[in-house]
Structures are given as structure tokens and as C-alpha cells.
Simulated assay, not measured.
Amino acid sequence: MKIASLFLVCGLAAGMAGCSGSESAVVVGSDQRGDANQATNAYSSVPSTASSDAVDFSKYKTYSWASQVRDEGNTVYFLNDLVFKAMVRDAVDHEMVSRGYTYSPSGGDLLLNFRVFDQPTEIRSNENLGNGYWGTSETYAYNPRNQVKLDRGSILVQMIDRDKSVEVWQGYASGLTNGNAFDKDKNKVYTAVGQIFNKYEYRGDKL
């Protein structure tokens, strides 16, 4: 797992495009189960994932949303903004479909969940994700190997192997801010989600 300091990136970018106090650079990262190249990062000491945990991503063809994503009235994890939640969901959906995955209302090979954080957050377990983030029927334990610190203005996307109830991939973007607020600009949100999925190297078809 490798994610750079937002402050460092902001400083390096200043010479090229500037990094104002009202708009920060977006930093992305990802982790996957069985990635033997995972390394420690500046936020926490995380052991490399054992190669024996490797996952065959070619077997995944379909995906479903976690229950809290399907619940159109649940805005707890999206700054109490239903429009913003739909925006992020549509951006993630676009990335999955563009990679050849087929949406299934239930029973998909992959169970997808996501949420946003407006404040710095450290994810070490399901408790850090929030009560109710996973439904009672979505038995899953957060992989401590994938612990990560997120800066202000973050989007976290997770993929769960439904049959095995294990996380196989997560991606995240930090620094999506405008001043002290989460930047909800649609173009920027779509760009950030696209940058997250640039870290995902697999497809649901044979292309």
C-alpha cells in the first residue's frame, strides 16, 4: 500500500499548476488481496500480503451494491446529501460497466460498497467504517493488512468476494476539498473516482 502525503504532493505540484488553499491536489491509492508488492507507507506499518492469499480476478463477472448503497434514504455516509451519494454511485457504476462488469441487483460476484469522509480518517476495522455501513446479512471482516489513513475529502471504494466474504480490493482518493468543505463538483468527483479505478487492473469481460 502506498499513498503520498497530501502536503508533499501539494508542494511538488505548486511549481506546475499551483495548489491554492481553496482547492487541494487529489491523491489516490489502492490495495488488493494477494498483492505481494504491497509495501509499508508513511501512515502505518502494514505487512506485505501473503502471495497465498492471491485472488483470481478473472472469475468476477457481475457486481451488486451493498445494502446501504441500495437504500436511497440512507445518506449517513455521504454528508447527509442524497444527490451527492447518487453522484458517487453513478461514477463508480460507470467505471465498473466500462470495465465489462454486469450489474446484478442481487447475488453479484462482487459486492461493492463505498463512502466519503470529510475529515481525516484512519481505517483499521469495520468499526471505523461506521455502524450499519455493512448490513447484517453482509458478513465481512475488514482486512487489517489494508489499514489506511485518509486525508480530508476522501472517497473509499471496496470490493468484497460475495462467496468468500473477504475484501479483495479497495481504492481511495483523498484531498477532494474546496477550502474546508468536501468538493462536490460533479466533474471533480467523476475524475477522482476515475483516478481510483485507474488503479484497478482487471475487467469483467475478455477484452
Rank of each mutant, 00 (worst) to 15 (best):
L6M: 10
V9L: 11
C10G: 14
M16V: 08
S20C: 02
G21N: 15
G21V: 10
G21T: 12
G21R: 13
G21A: 13
G21K: 10
E23R: 15
V28C: 14
Q32S: 12
A36R: 09
N37G: 12
N41E: 13
S45H: 10
P47T: 05
P47G: 09
S52L: 13
A54L: 03
S58N: 12
K59T: 15
T62P: 05
A66P: 00
V69C: 04
V76D: 14
V83Y: 00
V83W: 03
V83C: 02
K85D: 00
V88Y: 05
A91P: 12
E95S: 09
S98L: 08
T102A: 11
S106Y: 00
G108E: 06
L110R: 04
L110P: 03
F117S: 06
Q119L: 14
E122A: 12
R124N: 14
S125H: 07
N126I: 05
G130T: 00
N131P: 00
G132M: 04
G135F: 05
S137E: 12
Y140T: 09
P144R: 14
R145K: 12
L150P: 07
D151C: 10
R152Q: 12
L156P: 02
V157D: 07
S165K: 15
V166P: 04
V168M: 09
V168I: 14
V168Y: 09
G171L: 02
Y172W: 15
A173F: 08
G175E: 12
T177F: 06
G179Q: 05
A181W: 05
F182A: 02
F182G: 06
D185C: 00
K186S: 10
K188F: 02
Y190L: 06
T191G: 02
T191K: 14
T191I: 06
A192W: 07
V193T: 06
Y202D: 03
Y202W: 13
R203G: 06
G204H: 01
